[in-house]
Simulated scan of single mutants.
Amino acid sequence: MNWLPPLLRGLGTAGAAANARAELETAHVRNLQAALVVQRVNRSGAGHPLLPAAEVRVA
């Protein structure tokens, strides 16, 4: 019966808002992680920074 409360919350507008908030938070975390990857690659000894198109693909 532990699955019932989350299911009921998911049916209303509060559930929709919580889902949207979770999706935004996940997207934000992914963007932060991608930015860190770009920084690390750019700071590496390769000497060739990522092009903007490559930065988008990393994200």
Rank of each mutant, 00 (worst) to 15 (best):
A16E: 15
R43N: 11
N19A: 13
T26P: 01
V37W: 02
A14I: 07
V58T: 11
N19C: 09
R30V: 14
G45K: 14
A22K: 07
P49M: 01
L11Q: 12
V58E: 06
A54M: 13
L32W: 03
V41A: 05
H48F: 04
H48L: 07
R9S: 11
V58A: 04
L36N: 08
R43E: 13
L11G: 01
A16N: 10
P6W: 00
Q39N: 07
Q33H: 08
L32S: 09
L7Q: 05
A35I: 08
N2Q: 08
R30E: 14
R30Y: 09
A18K: 03
L11R: 02
L8D: 07
H28G: 11
L11P: 00
H48Q: 09
A59I: 09
N19V: 01
N42W: 00
P49F: 01
A54W: 09
N2K: 03
Q33I: 13
L24F: 12
A53T: 14
A17V: 13
Q39T: 12
G45V: 06
V29W: 09
A59V: 11
A14Q: 08
L4W: 05
R57A: 15
A34I: 04
A22F: 02
P52F: 00
L8R: 07
R43K: 09
L36Q: 10
A14S: 13
R43V: 07
R21P: 05
V38L: 04
R43Q: 12
V56Y: 10
E23P: 00
E55P: 02
A46M: 09
L51S: 15
A18H: 04
L8V: 14
A16R: 12
L36P: 05
E23F: 07
A17F: 08
M1I: 15
A22M: 08
H48M: 06
G15D: 00
A16C: 06
Q33Y: 09
L36G: 08
P52M: 00
A54N: 12
G15I: 00
R57N: 14
V58S: 03
T13A: 13
V38C: 12
G47Q: 04
A34N: 06
A27V: 10
V29E: 13
M1T: 15
A18L: 07
R43H: 06
G10S: 15
L50R: 02
R40S: 14
T26M: 12
P6Q: 03
G47P: 00
A35P: 07
R21Y: 12
L7S: 05
Q39A: 08
A20N: 13
Q33A: 13
G12K: 01
R43P: 03
P49V: 11
A34S: 12
A18Q: 08
A53Y: 07
A35E: 13
A54T: 15
E25D: 10
L7K: 04
V56Q: 14
G15N: 00
T13E: 11
